[in-house]
């Protein structure tokens, strides 16, 4: 257990030293939050109602799809995994350590948005804070599990930047965090349901718990876990 905890703490420190990770976990989401917060709330005062949720979803999606796979690509597509094998360090710890570390980092970013938005942009806080943070945590875990798929399957960080955009940009445009989905053509609205961000916005903006909305997110999570498990088993063999 001591080794596992040390590994998690070490991953947290390594993430803080990794510029690529820091940029996607903190710098860009918070700059984007400041920029969009200023513009959206002055153009459309109604945006204050969902600013916290939409900017949090943006931050989590970016961090999970563009940032969290970076340490995994560095580990599983390099000689580092050999170091794990010969050092008797289970390969799964790379994923779990990264997941926990990324969760904490992105949760912190979410808290910063949650605390700053009402002060800086007069944004409305969610009524049920506990329910909001539980939903946020679920959405965050789902996104990180999908980010893990990218981290395990993509062989280089340059390719990762390209492939991650395939998930990140549609999440941004089709989920409703930038503008209402009702403005999109029907086909794109339907396509939006393929991305966790769409469901994330739905659960985090609800005033009451609607368990049915969690099912798609659970589906994403289970599917990602199966894919990750299969890939990890293959990496373990050779």
């Amino acid at each position: 257990m001591g080794a596992f905890i040390y590994g998690v703490a070490l991953q947290w420190k390594l993430d803080l030293r990794n510029k690529g990770v820091l940029i996607t976990y903190y710098l860009v989401p918070l700059l984007f939050f400041a920029f969009i917060g200023t513009i959206f709330t002055s153009i459309n005062p109604e945006a204050k109602e969902t600013l916290i949720q939409s900017m949090t979803i943006f931050a989590i999606t970016m961090g999970a799809f563009l940032g969290s796979p970076i340490p995994l690509v560095e580990l599983y597509s390099s000689e580092i995994k050999k170091a794990y094998k010969v050092g008797k360090i289970p390969l799964w710890t790379g994923i779990v350590n990264n997941l926990i570390s990324a969760f904490v980092h992105l949760f912190l970013t979410s808290i910063i948005i949650f605390l700053v938005a009402p002060i800086a942009f007069d944004a409305t806080r969610p009524d049920n804070i506990l329910f909001y943070f539980v939903s946020l945590a679920i959405f965050l875990i789902v996104c990180l599990s999908v980010g893990t798929v990218l981290g395990l399957y993509i062989k280089s960080t340059s390719k990762l930047t390209m492939f991650s955009q395939i998930l990140f940009l549609p999440s941004l445009m089709l989920s409703g965090i930038m503008f209402p989905v009702e403005l999109l053509p029907k086909g794109l609205q339907t396509a939006g349901f393929l991305f966790p961000a769409t469901w994330g916005l739905k659960i985090m903006t609800r005033l009451q718990v609607d368990l049915l909305l969690y099912l798609p997110l659970i589906g994403f999570f289970v599917l990602a876990c199966i894919i990750n498990f299969i890939k990890l088993a293959r990496i373990g063999i050779d």
């Binding site: 001591g2 080794a3 040390y6 590994g7 070490l10 420190k13 390594l14 030293r17 990794n18 340490p71 560095e74 580990l75 390099s78 000689e79 580092i80 050999k82 170091a83 010969v86 050092g87 008797k88 360090i89």
Partner: peptide
Amino acid sequence: GVQLQSTSLPGSITAIEVYKLFSKWN
């Protein structure tokens, strides 16, 4: 025991951190 090759560890990890990680897992 296996001596790793030159590109086998994350660039930002320190020597003492690697040593502790391997010590703890063993």
